[in-house]
Simulated scan of single mutants.
Amino acid sequence: MDAELRTRFDAGMRTLLVPDPYGHGSVPIGPDEDRREATVSGVVIRYYVSRGVETVTVVRVVYV
């Protein structure tokens, strides 16, 4: 990921996904609401939400 995309991605994560990991167009993957997929700044990510500790863990990043 080049520096410009990384800057946009980091900003998108901070301002969109982290404050509301269940919103902003994210969708659950399968029956588990905490396992999700979203597009942030043009980058498709799959992630888990840990409600008890307010943590979002990205497990897959796909960009072109």
Rank of each mutant, 00 (worst) to 15 (best):
M1G: 14
M1Y: 12
M1Q: 12
M1E: 13
M1I: 14
M1P: 11
M1R: 13
D2G: 15
D2M: 03
A3M: 13
E4C: 05
E4A: 14
E4F: 10
E4M: 08
L5Q: 14
R6E: 15
T7V: 07
T7M: 03
T7L: 10
F9C: 00
F9E: 00
D10E: 14
A11C: 03
A11G: 00
A11T: 11
G12T: 02
G12V: 02
G12C: 03
M13F: 12
M13K: 04
R14K: 15
T15E: 15
T15L: 11
L16N: 14
L16P: 00
L16R: 13
L16S: 13
L17A: 07
L17V: 10
P19D: 09
D20K: 02
D20I: 01
P21H: 06
P21C: 12
Y22P: 01
Y22D: 02
Y22V: 01
G23K: 01
G23D: 09
H24G: 02
H24D: 10
H24Y: 06
H24P: 03
G25L: 00
G25I: 01
G25H: 01
S26H: 08
V27I: 14
V27R: 14
V27S: 08
P28M: 09
P28C: 13
I29N: 03
I29R: 05
I29M: 07
I29E: 00
I29K: 08
P31D: 14
P31A: 13
P31R: 09
D32S: 09
D32R: 11
D34Q: 08
D34H: 10
D34A: 06
D34C: 07
R35Y: 12
R36F: 01
E37D: 04
E37N: 06
A38F: 03
T39E: 11
V40Y: 06
S41P: 01
S41A: 15
S41K: 01
S41R: 00
S41L: 00
G42C: 03
G42R: 04
G42A: 06
V43R: 05
V43A: 06
V44H: 05
I45L: 08
I45M: 02
I45D: 02
I45N: 02
I45R: 00
R46Q: 13
R46E: 15
Y47R: 05
Y47F: 15
Y47D: 05
Y48D: 07
Y48M: 10
Y48V: 08
V49T: 13
V49F: 10
V49Q: 04
V49E: 05
S50C: 13
S50R: 07
S50T: 13
S50V: 14
G52S: 12
G52F: 09
G52C: 13
V53M: 04
V53Y: 04
E54A: 12
E54C: 09
E54S: 12
E54Y: 05
T55E: 13
T55D: 08
T55K: 14
T55V: 14
V56L: 15
V56I: 15
T57N: 03
T57C: 03
V58K: 04
R60N: 11
R60F: 04
R60L: 13
V61M: 11
V61P: 05
V61H: 08
V62W: 06
V62P: 00
V64Q: 09
V64N: 08
V64I: 00
